[in-house]
Write a protein that binds this DNA or RNA. Structure first.
Lengths: 288, 288
DNA sequence: ATATTTTTGTAGTATAATTACAACCAAATC
DNA sequence: GATTTGGTTGTAATTATACTACAAAAATAT
């Protein structure tokens, strides 16, 4: 029969399920909850099984699918399958015996996984608040140490192009000194994978005292840093390799910061385009 | 032709299809070819449709599925759905009108896509050669400028922990000076997204003259840099946002370097474990 | 309490996936 | 040159699965 008009589906299925959840009727909600509890399992379930597991009947499952603007149960299963982290891939740590292709595969899969996990789990409201704070900032500073210094530097390297006064410090002394000079309206973006780096904590405390807004980016939940920050973006990810060099969370941190940057740059492109273009042109002469 | 039945599912379905293709019978091959011609389409086909499109019968389709070690047609569809590049996601540039959730989605999807593209396309042989060169290196230097300086720094931050003499320079003067002091057996890892940054090219030339092995990491194919390098790893990716701040390729570059690092660290863990442990313990005191 | 609407499940129907088996084809044998 | 044999393929029946029509049940309003 005639194909349904292709609806633009900005959200993923699981997100849509969560979105319609309140508007669902009791028995349909049971289906939704069963699904959300273990989406992975639904893929290999028949409609009868899912109905049974949810303690309801098949037609209810179908009605639930229709609420999601899907043609039926099959399409639900297919949609979930597409969305779930890369199929058979189970998060695996790199072993000493792994050959290069295996390491390559594992690390890249883990990175991809971390990205899609974050895409699903991260609270967009937090990002929104962060962008608003950055947009209003008279000055932005980026602090990070060790591995996180790289992230801070990357952030700095993006944001300064917008013409906003920026600076980046990885030296703790410079950080506290600089932090003491901040004032209300200024923003400090503090990056710490552990969320408990002493020096960063101290710098953040000083910045807060100066009246600055502090955005924290960490790789763990409920850290000492998050207690101090106005906005904390926690990027959770199971590392595939040596925890010593936390790669996946670093990638996700960089990506998150890029989202902040692009949103900000786009939102105020009118103001910033000239600056961006100038920077861009300045670089051309550096090429062969 | 002994039929060894020792198939581990390391590969993806599509790869498996290609692998078994020669071993298939005429009519089954027709199914395989129809599938490979347009995997996307199969997802919404019934077994009858696929059989018809392939010019064969349903049982043949099933037999084909079984050859892939799948339980049946349903599982084939589900597997393809899981594997295909993030569903309906078409590479889209961020538009000025996009809201934060949309930007978030687009950028993360683009990053994930770039990773899986690289995983599929990148020549593992190149990585292998790079690891061998690094493993044999008496000294490793990392050069990068602008955005690539961040990548170089991250690389440095990883490798120096192995106890190998390392250094990282983003200043062109330091680069040429340091490059002139390299000797045979030393390795220079030069990072340049464009592959045509003048200063990097010059430093690489000097390093080559000193007898060092040069590994290049770029974001484009056939660049001036790749002509100079002993080993060039080109990471190709369509950028989702401002080309000014090439995010996706940077992430992929970082991931590639991590693969080099982990492979090296694992391969010689015996030698390096002590060093890694020491570094790790040294950091603990920095935490709260 | 009765009518009306909404929600839900039962029972049946249609469709799709799978199996059993027979027809087919090609090569080897008599 | 017919006949057997092995493998390959499709027809037809079987089973499982998704879906629909409708009526029972629950909730709400009158």
């Amino acid at each position: 029969m005639g194909k349904k008009v292709k609806k633009v589906q900005t959200h993923t299925i699981l997100a849509r399920v969560r979105a319609v959840l309140p508007a669902l009727r009791a028995s349909e909600r049971k289906v939704a909850e069963t699904l959300l509890r273990n989406p992975e399992a639904v893929i290999s379930k028949s409609i009868t099984q899912l109905a049974e597991d949810a303690g309801t009947s098949e037609p209810t499952v179908i009605r639930f699918c229709r609420k999601l603007e899907l043609s039926g149960y099959m399409e639900l299963k297919l949609s979930i399958a597409r969305e779930l982290p890369s199929g058979a891939y189970i998060h695996e740590n790199v072993a000493e015996t792994d050959t290069l292709p295996v390491v390559f595969h594992k690390l890249f899969m883990a990175a991809g996984e971390a990205l899609s996990e974050t895409l699903k789990a991260l609270d967009v409201g937090l990002l929104d608040r962060a962008v608003k704070a950055l947009a209003a900032a008279g000055r932005i500073e980026f602090y990070g140490q060790g591995g996180s210094a790289v992230v801070a530097r990357d952030a700095y390297h993006k944001f300064f192009r917008l013409g906003i006064p920026c600076s980046c410090h990885d030296d703790p002394h410079m950080q506290v000194m600089s932090a003491s000079l901040l004032k209300a309206g200024d923003v400090l973006l503090a990056i710490s994978h552990t969320g408990s780096t002493r020096d960063i904590l101290e710098s953040v405390r000083v910045a807060k005292e100066s009246g600055a807004t502090v955005i924290g980016i960490t790789g763990a939940d409920k850290t000492p840093l998050s207690r101090l920050c106005d906005i904390t973006i926690s990027v959770l990810s199971k590392e595939a390799a040596l925890v010593l060099a936390p790669m996946t969370s670093r990638l996700v941190q960089l990506a998150v910061i890029d989202v902040l940057f692009v949103t900000l740059a786009m939102g105020s492109l009118g103001h910033h385009r000239q600056q961006l273009d100038r920077v861009k042109r300045a670089l051309i002469g550096k090429r062969f």
